[in-house]
Structures are given as structure tokens and as C-alpha cells.
Nucleic acid binder design. Structure first.
Lengths: 298, 298
DNA sequence: TTGTAAGCGTTATCAT
DNA sequence: ATGATAACGCTTACAA
């Protein structure tokens, strides 16, 4: 009987299974943008651990919009996902997030384990790293190199992560009794860095160093500066945060954030199941000095 | 009645729906490595189109191994995926791909639309671009710049894509009556480029130009060369293929491949359904000259 | 138009 | 142990 079934290529319907057990072997990860290596690394961590346990990963791109996240949570709920991991941070001003919070609560009641890998405005298992200190650490390092006039290229407005990193920068600057108010508008993309560079260039007063909200923006600053003939790191030092792959390509000074481990840890929590003891965690980061920063000797 | 249902936060179980309709609103995309921007772009294209039609995308990482792809096809089949898109190319030597072919055939019989976005060894709707010509075009461009000693850093052994791109390089070289046999072993990652650079460096005879299987390897070559004090593009020109984001970061000469459109097209085919007329397609690529190549004037 | 019943492929329960 | 049966939540076909 079973022999024939196998010959015929039988495979149990996951749909039927899920219907009766009220849960599927699906783990959803909601990211801001899958092309952004920051999220790709996290997703990769989730998938690798989930995969070895026979779970399948659904990566959902939310374009960093709360409304889209909501749609994804609902969809994942309809498939009775075993777990949902939120890879991106929320907005400080909670716009439209009551609905999200409700949907998340509902998913949890339905048995999904939801874990956040960035600061979020709703209850969930939280696994993260210290954004504020990460930013503090690069800034402190750049200061230790002798730089005084240091600019900060900010992230998207309203994002909790943007805020935390900005605070870290400012705290380090204040602790060194330097001007912590030299900020530039930004974002998370290369173009923001390019713009920041051209703003500084056209203002005519180049700083000693610039620190950006993330690697991609830092690379934009780097590119914009070098394009205009400004030597990095000889004339201006540049540093980022995250240590995503591209940072190595340009040998960018940055701080390594445990992106992949965040995903691995999130998946582990989900695989452990709803009734396992939940433990929030804060993973360590690490300063990675490379070749876009140099000692100030002027 | 419906009012109360809504108040109570009712949402139909996709599991129940799928069970009876024998299909789900899931589109699976099987990629080699989600952290590789090549695949991330494709996945992003799939997800954006799928998402607007209420379909949800499952990104599955196969580590470029046929066995893992097989596991994913089976899993996707168990969830009665509406469609499966293969983002990576297959191996020329068909190792262990009979089982894959069987699983794919089964999935198709079960109603899944399967589309390949790279050369594959099993029947499926195929949407692609011309790898051979893309490689030919960059090579031809580099030759037109006056270079004669041009090296090619190869891709992973056995991959159909690697082979096609190599052929394109060699055809262009032969057409210009240049030595088409100056090949270096490689892969798809930065490190391969670094190694290729150090191989050339230690051999002591630098070429006029080097073309790599993809952008990341090209960036590795670039970095390795510059690190050793070799000026790019003044002394050696470097070019890649794909035009992924990092290529812009280093202003790499490359050929733009319609990655995102590939995903969009694949998703469209799936959304059109099984019984829609299937049309294989070949999308256009475009040479993108940037600042890592220059005219030879020695 | 509205309502009822059957069945999708599992798992789990309950007799045998 | 083993085998029959109900139930999971939905869609659809058919009857009223």
C-alpha cells in the first residue's frame, strides 16, 4: 500500500495538514526592502535555520510602510504561519499602527510566534542590538582619530532606528564636548549619501569626517566626495553602520551588526514554539575600522 | 451578520480555501542566494507584481544546489503554489536533476505554473536574456577601447550561465583575433575577484583589462588591484556583468541585465494562469560604460 | 435569490 | 494495535 503510494509520488498536502493542526510550517519575515543587504542578511539567517527544520520561509517586502506590513501580517495569519518576524523598525509616531498592533495580537492569539528584530511599537519577542551604542561607538572612534568637525547624515524621518542612531552620535559628540548639531537630511539609500556630499561640497566648508546612518549612505558620501576630487580618508574620513557586504567592497569603516545572527535567533525562537520560555535578547556589535577613516594630521 | 463578522476580526482561512480549490495564492521563487543582489532584484520584481494582485511570495534559498532546489519544489508543491519561478541557472552536467525534473513535472500537473528566468534543464516557461551576447558586448566594448591582453574571470564551474558568458567573451575575442584563452578560475563572490587579482599580481604580468563573470567578482578584482597600488582604469580596465547596485557604488563598467523585469515578467505569467497562452521571452540588456574602464594609450 | 450539503486531504478520536 | 469516522474551514453545486 505504502509502496504504491511512493511509486505514485504521493506527498501529503500541507494545506490539509495545516487546516486540521491550525498551523503551518511557514515562517514569514517582513522586511522593508529585500534588495537592501541589511534585510537580505536577516532573511538569510531566518531561512537557513528554518530550512534545516523543514520550515519554509516567506519573505514579504513592506516598502517600509506600516500599511503594507499590516497586509502581510494578515496574509501570514491566513496561512496560519508558525511565526512572523519583523525585520524593520517601526515609526516613532505610531501612525496607523493601532491596526497593525491589533493584527499582530490576533496572530499571536491564533498561535503564531511573533518576534521583532528591531524596535517595534507592539508586544512581541524582541531580539535586537543596541543601535544607540553602535552609533556611539563609531562616532567615538572617529573622534579618537582627532577629528572635531564631524557631520551626521540622518536616516528616514520618524523611524525609531534613525532616532536611536542619531542619539548615539550626539551623545558621543557631547561627551567629547563637540558640536552635535551638524546634521544632514538623509535616508537609507546611496542617493542620499550623494546628495549629502554635494550639499557639503557646495557649502564650501568640508568637515573632518562624516558618519552616515548606514553603509549605503556612507558609500554615497564617499563616492560623491571622491568624484569631486576630495581625498578620502586623507582629507575627509567617512564611516557607516551595519557592515553589509558592500562595505567590504569599498573598505568602509563601519560597525558590524549581527544581522545574520538576528535572523538565526528569531527563527530559533519560533522553532522552539509558542509555549517555550521567551527570552528577549540583545546581540553584540563590533567596530570595524577599515580604510575610509584616518587620523587627522592637519 | 457580516458586520458582526468584521467587528470580530474574521479573516478567511487561506488553508481552507486552498484545500478545496487545490491551489493557493502563493508564488515561490527559488534563488541561489538571497543576499546576492542579482537574486534579490529578481525576487523583488516577482514580489512587487504578485503583491498587487494579492499573491504572497515565498523566497527560497537553494545555495545553488540542485538537491536543495528539489526540496523547495516539493515544499512549494505541498502548499499548492500557484507558481514557482526558478531564478538561478542549472548545471550543464545535469547532476541529480532527473529527480528535480520529475518534481517539476509533478508540480505542473498539479496546476502550478513554473517559469525559469535562467537556462534550465527541465520544461518550463522560460523568460530570460542573452547571457552570451551580454558578455560579448562588454568584451567588444573593452576591445574597442584599444585593449589587447584581456583576461576573463570565470564563474562557478558547470553552471550554464557561466558557460554562456564565457562563450560570449571568447567569441568577441576571437572576432577581434585576440587570445581568448586567458582565463582565471572564479566564482560569483567578491573573494574570487580578490584571488584573481592576486594571481595576476604575483604572476607579474598585468593585462590591459579584465572582465569578470559578474559585478561582485569584478569589484573584487578592482579592490585587489587598487589595494596593490595598480591604478584602475589608468593602468588596467575592469568590467563586470549584471549592473547590480554595488556596481554603481564603485562606478563599475558593466552591462545592465533586466533583473527586476525578469521577476515582473515571471510573476505576470503566473498571474495569467495555467491556461493562458505561454510565451517565452528574451529581454534586452544594455551596456553601461562607467569609470573603471578607459582607453588604452600606451 | 437564499439555503443546504458534500467534499477537499489531513489528523485525531473513538470503537473495535 | 487497527480501522473507521468526525472535524478542520472553506467553496461550490444543487435544491428550494
Amino acid at each position: 500500500v505504502l509502496a504504491v503510494a511512493n511509486e505514485l509520488g504521493y506527498s501529503p498536502s500541507a494545506l490539509g495538514q495545516g487546516l486540521v493542526t491550525r498551523s503551518s510550517r511557514i515562517i514569514g519575515v517582513i522586511v522593508g526592502d529585500i534588495v537592501d543587504p541589511y534585510f537580505a542578511e536577516i532573511a538569510s539567517g531566518v531561512e537557513s535555520t528554518a530550512g534545516t527544520s523543514g520550515y519554509i520561509t516567506m519573505v514579504c517586502t513592506a516598502d517600509r510602510r506600516t500599511a503594507t506590513e499590516l497586509a502581510h501580517v494578515r496574509a501570514l495569519g491566513e496561512y496560519r504561519a508558525a511565526g512572523i518576524v519583523f525585520a524593520g523598525s517601526g515609526y516613532a509616531d505610531h501612525r496607523g499602527s493601532e491596526a497593525l498592533a491589533r493584527a499582530v495580537a490576533q496572530a499571536r492569539e491564533a498561535g503564531s510566534v511573533v518576534v521583532s528584530v528591531a524596535p517595534r511599537e507592539f508586544p512581541s519577542v524582541s531580539i535586537g542590538y543596541d543601535n544607540r551604542t553602535a552609533a556611539y561607538d563609531v562616532t567615538d572612534y572617529v573622534i579618537s582619530l582627532g577629528h572635531r568637525d564631524i557631520r551626521f547624515v540622518q536616516g528616514p524621518a520618524g523611524l525609531i532606528t534613525s532616532k536611536a542612531r542619531l542619539e548615539g552620535f550626539q551623545a558621543a559628540m557631547r561627551d567629547a564636548e563637540l558640536d552635535a548639531q551638524r546634521l544632514l537630511p538623509g535616508g537609507f539609500a546611496f542617493e542620499s549619501g550623494l546628495e549629502a556630499a554635494s550639499t557639503m561640497l557646495s557649502a564650501g566648508n568640508l568637515p573632518d569626517a562624516v558618519i552616515a546612518i548606514n553603509d549605503e549612505v556612507a558609500i554615497g558620501v564617499l563616492t560623491g566626495l571622491r568624484h569631486a576630487g576630495v581625498e578620502v580618508p586623507e582629507r575627509v574620513s567617512v564611516a557607516g553602520i551595519d557592515d553589509t557586504r558592500p562595505a567590504r567592497f569599498v573598505e568602509l569603516t563601519t560597525v558590524s551588526v549581527p544581522l545574520r545572527d538576528l535572523g538565526v535567533a528569531a527563527a530559533s525562537v519560533i522553532l522552539a514554539g509558542v509555549d517555550a520560555p521567551v527570552a528577549d535578547a540583545v546581540l553584540p556589535h563590533r567596530l570595524v575600522p577599515r580604510r575610509t577613516t584616518a587620523r587627522r594630521d592637519r
